[in-house]
Design a protein around this nucleic acid. Sequence first.
DNA 1: TCGTTAGTTCGATAACTATCGAACCACAAA
DNA 2: TTTGTGGTTCGATAGTTATCGAACTAACGA
Lengths: 99, 99
Amino acid sequence: MNIEQANSAAEDERRVAIFKALAEQNRLRIIRVLYQTPREMTCSEVGEQLNISKSTVSYHFKALRLVGLTNTRQVAQTKYLSLQLATFDRYLPGFLATL
Amino acid sequence: MNIEQANSAAEDERRVAIFKALAEQNRLRIIRVLYQTPREMTCSEVGEQLNISKSTVSYHFKALRLVGLTNTRQVAQTKYLSLQLATFDRYLPGFLATL
DNA sequence: TCGTTAGTTCGATAACTATCGAACCACAAA
DNA sequence: TTTGTGGTTCGATAGTTATCGAACTAACGA
């Protein structure tokens, strides 16, 4: 096994995790709304817009954060979400523009 | 809801299906081996290389084909697999180059 | 201090998925 | 016509995931 293959194999786990995170309706909608909205958004705001319970939104937020697709900026008890563009650039260049 | 949003919503189902198809170790390895091998490959050939049973390979081949990520060229009882580049270009431009 | 707001975690449930061997089908080769 | 090859489908199983309400924590505001 050469270096490129070893590298690919090592990164596959990460790639699979990222695809899993994007392979779900609500998370994809979260990504789009974050991409298309010109301001930061909170958990409850997204929950209202997508009409899902706050526990489910929290669950999805965590899933996106864990694979590095989003960032969180916390202000008091409120969390603002934004896209981690570097991850998209590295693993899915050009994807956001297709939304 | 404007036209772009309606269009996005309609295509989300397809997008989710494509991400689901890629969110699995063995299918990702199949995609890579197809991308990196300069000739067509058969089911059994891939199965040997990835060391998985032929029924499982068949299952994954079907999954990739159903979402339009691959093509099949049949010659007698042998099926040759290749990537459907148009799908990657439309939904995941630049992804293959990251492998 | 007391109620409110923002979000997390838990427990339960229902649905989906990856995997294998076995049985099967279609075709080719002997 | 029998044997072998390439692939699909089936049935079973084990593991994963999306969802909700309820209970909880932390922080703000009156």
